[in-house]
Design a protein around this nucleic acid. Structure first.
Lengths: 151, 151
DNA sequence: GAGCTATACTTGAGTACGCAAGGATCATAG
DNA sequence: CTATGATCCTTGCGTACTCAAGTATAGCTC
């Protein structure tokens, strides 16, 4: 019954994402009380200069909307993992800065989360396959907002 | 600044998914008032025997939870695209059956949605690349619920 | 410097889920 | 036939978003 389903590759992509994020986020939640997005944002901050970023840059790098970032950071802030900081040169922007607790949290969470990613995702592929997969995925459109990336 | 970010391939996977589903679902919503999941379910039904499925099988095939399916079908039902139907041999199960309007809807939506998928996803790859991508994605774990698939 | 538009962020309202718990119904074992 | 456990489905509740609208600031043009 080779049904004429929509591009099977795309469907696999969708299914794989659903299954992987479900499992990964369950584990991350259980062990560290973090969402996948929380983790994502914390990592961005961790590697940012001065471990601080403008909210809008966070939004662009993790592909959330501005409002999504506001609420996500609200959560991290009440959890004591980040703090706000005003910007001297532009009163519109407020930085999100990683706190000491935030650094600790991300370093802890990294440990298990990277292992989980490796187990459920990375280990399925050889080195070359992984690179090729990365290359293929890298061709996909990321945003209509033209400008992207930092370092 | 080659930062030691979590497996870049995985991150690309996440970003690509976020960007693609955002755009695809915006278009699908605008043109047909359907969610990606709605579409997904309708397609499954479309190709199912008698265009009918048990809810639990829908859940498994599109990777939603049972409750997610219940509510999604509630929506499709009030939209007149599917109807419930009791199962004679097992009073626990209720089938979801595609209505005439549902068939029409999915046939309409397919047209544009498949084109959108092709534009944003498929066209990025050559034939072989697409196959390879599909193969690689197919290796990823789909569910812990062992049993999968139908035809 | 008055007025415009663009940018950064927040807030209100709505939604698409998930999880956990509950209600039927089935299947089996005594 | 009754008790036990599994399966199918729904419901209550919580949450992570989104979009649209609003506020504040920045910077440009005249």
């Amino acid at each position: 019954m080779g049904s004429n389903l929509p591009d099977t590759t795309w469907v696999r992509f969708l299914r794989a994402h659903a299954a992987l994020t479900r499992e990964l986020s369950a584990r991350l939640e259980a062990l560290h009380e973090l969402t996948l997005s929380d983790f994502d944002v914390l990592v961005q901050l961790y590697y940012a200069e001065g471990q601080r970023m403008r909210r809008i840059d966070i939004a662009r790098s993790v592909l959330l909307t501005a409002s999504g970032v506001t609420r996500l950071l609200d959560g991290l802030e009440t959890g004591g993992l980040v703090t706000k900081e005003r910007c001297d040169s532009d009163a519109r922007v407020t930085y999100a800065v990683l706190t000491r607790a935030g650094v600790k949290k991300i370093e802890d969470a990294r440990e298990t989360h990277l292992a989980d990613i490796e187990e459920l995702f990375g280990s399925r592929f050889s080195r070359e396959e992984r690179e090729q997969l990365g290359e293929l995925l890298g061709r996909l459109p990321l945003a209509q907002t033209s400008e992207v990336c930092s370092a």
